[in-house]
Design a protein around this nucleic acid. Structure first.
Lengths: 204, 204
DNA sequence: ACATTTTGTTGACGTTGTCAACATTTTTTT
DNA sequence: AAAAAAATGTTGACAACGTCAACAAAATGT
């Protein structure tokens, strides 16, 4: 288990994910090739095939790290407002939007549909489901506390997810640079929209 | 201005847009090459360059046709419920989702971010703005009629756009096939979510 | 120690987007 | 009506890409 070898990398899988994420952040998904990622990681152009079945499998690996990051952020948002599901929901929504603004190309990889036509990836599905369940849990607690209206929990969660996801998409693609150019303006807008959502979910 | 020529096509630009849209519908954006589109239109592999600067310019042309279609559908939704902004908004939202379900890959081209990093395209920007303005007009009329609450019209429109856009994205990528597999189930879900939205926008 | 498995490299292949050079048709100018 | 110009198409080439097969080195198990 040496450390200074040149032939065997030691941790190439992670290195590729890292290099790939960095390149995507810089140049966008469309302009990142498998070969460029391999080169950035310091290996030959086919070395990635020892760790991923094909290019899309590597992209899915990067998307998974994005979903893990998202899950963490949502968790932090919840912890910031213990016992207050309304605030938790707003904070989670803002956190989601924040991530999309900070890492627009990663967000695009996660939700832009590049991977949509692929055969299902277990790790990807699990991490993305986990992120969604974090949201559904907030809703469920809010319903029990009587601040959110009754009804199918997952459906309310889906509503919230839709708002946040739609806004994040608009924010990350620059579609609303006319209305809100700066990062702060976008987040303020996100907060107000999250409040609109809250009204729709509240008990009347 | 003959009709049966073989060398000059006569209307190649439109033919390419049509063939491209069809191929994308069948195979997805990632699996459609410029050359395949040219072949489907019956011309050589570089003929498209007389009508589009590059591949992405052609894709933007196809996206424009999608935005035009969207604008038409939104217009029809409005006409179906004259004088009732609430119903108009719901119908517009459902129409939007319907389009995304019917043509998921076209929707993906329009909103998936493949074209996001391109230099701005006038025709694309205009048609997409037009679609958004249709929505904003519904909101404005609803505010004047007193059924939607006061406030920045564009911001309310943005909220509505976010919900619908987010849900459409989830619907078109198959992310909610667990909860609602059939087309009808998805549309019913969309209708209920649009109603949630309505509550958030209504005057209290 | 040796055999096996894992992990890396080299070299090749067909496909892709794009460019330069050339051909044909249409339009404009004279 | 003839010539010049512009528009629109084709052919052939190129480098870059994803992927595969064959080989090489290191790590691991016996």
């Amino acid at each position: 288990m040496g450390a200074a070898n040149t032939y065997h990398h030691g941790n190439l899988r992670e290195a590729l994910l890292e290099a790939g994420a960095k390149l995507i952040e810089e140049k966008g998904i469309a302009d990142v090739s498998l070969r460029a990622v391999a080169k950035a990681a310091g290996v030959s152009h086919t070395a990635p095939y020892r760790h991923f079945n094909d290019k899309n499998a590597m992209l899915r690996g990067i998307a998974v790290t994005g979903f893990r990051l998202l899950g963490q952020r949502l968790g932090q948002a919840v912890e910031l407002h213990p016992g207050d599901p309304g605030q938790q929901l707003t904070a989670a929504g803002v956190a989601y939007v924040e991530l999309a603004i900070e890492h627009p190309r990663l967000h695009n990889l996660m939700f832009g549909g590049v991977l949509a036509d692929d055969s299902v990836d277990d790790a990807l599905e699990e991490t993305s489901n986990h992120a969604f369940r974090g949201l559904a849990d907030i809703i469920a607690r809010g319903q029990r506390a009587g601040v959110f209206r009754e009804g199918d929990t997952d459906e309310l969660a889906l509503t919230a997810w839709s708002v946040v996801h739609g806004f994040a998409m608009l924010a990350s693609t620059g579609s609303l640079d006319h209305r809100a150019a700066s990062r702060e303006a976008k987040l303020a807008l996100a907060r107000r929209i999250a409040d609109s959502l809250l009204i729709g979910l509240a008990t009347r």
